[in-house]
C-alpha cells in the first residue's frame, strides 16, 4: 500500500516535470532586456537622487547618520503617498524591480495590502494587513540581524577573556 503511494507520488512528479517542459514552448518569455534596462535606469536614478539629497543635507551641517535617516524617511513617505494616490502600481508596472528593490518597494508593500482592507476596520483590517508583506521582511531581517549581534557579542566575550 505504502509502496504504491510512493510510486504514485514519483509518477506525479515526473509527469509534472515533463509537462512543465512541454508547456514552456507555448509560453512567451518576459522581455528580459528591456525590463532589465528599465529597472537598472530607474533604480539607479532613485539612488542617485537619494545620494544628491544626502550630500545637500550633510552640506547643511547634518551628520551622516541623520541625513541618511532623513533620506530614508523621504523615500518611504513619497512611495506610500504614491501608493495611496494609486500611482505606484503603474510606476512599478513600468520600472519593475527599479522601484521594488529600493526601500520604496518595502514602503509600498505595507500600504498596498492595508489600503484594501479598510472595510474590514482600522484594527483588524488596516492594522494587521500593513504587515502581510512587510511582516516576513521585518521578521526575517531583524531575526538575522539579532543573531549576527549575538554571535558578534559571543566572539567578543571569547576574545576578551
Amino acid at each position: 500500500m505504502k509502496d504504491s503511494d510512493e510510486k504514485e507520488k514519483k509518477l506525479r512528479k515526473d509527469i509534472g516535470k515533463a509537462y512543465g517542459d512541454y508547456v514552456k514552448q507555448f509560453t512567451p518569455s518576459p522581455a528580459y532586456v528591456s525590463n532589465g534596462i528599465k529597472a537598472f535606469l530607474v533604480g539607479g536614478l532613485i539612488c542617485t537622487a537619494a545620494f544628491w539629497l544626502q550630500k545637500r543635507l550633510q552640506d547643511g551641517g547634518m551628520s551622516e547618520t541623520d541625513a541618511g535617516a532623513f533620506v530614508t524617511i523621504l523615500l518611504v513617505v513619497s512611495a506610500q503617498l504614491l501608493t495611496g494616490l494609486g500611482v505606484f502600481d503603474s510606476l512599478a508596472k513600468f520600472a519593475g524591480a527599479g522601484v521594488i528593490v529600493p526601500i520604496t518597494g518595502f514602503a509600498n508593500s505595507m500600504v498596498a495590502p492595508a489600503i484594501e482592507y479598510k472595510k474590514e476596520g482600522p484594527v483588524l483590517g488596516v492594522g494587521s494587513k500593513l504587515f502581510t508583506v512587510a511582516g516576513p521582511v521585518l521578521v526575517c531581517g531583524i531575526s538575522a540581524a539579532v543573531a549576527v549581534g549575538l554571535i558578534y557579542w559571543m566572539i567578543g566575550r571569547i576574545q576578551g577573556v
Partner: peptide
C-alpha cells in the same frame, strides 16, 4: 557609483522576478 551599484541591485531583482 551610486547610480551603477543602485541600478545593479535593481537589475538583479528584475532578473529574479522575470526568470
Amino acid at each position: 557609483w551610486a547610480f551603477v551599484i543602485g541600478g545593479g541591485f535593481c537589475l538583479i531583482g528584475q532578473i529574479l522576478m522575470d526568470a
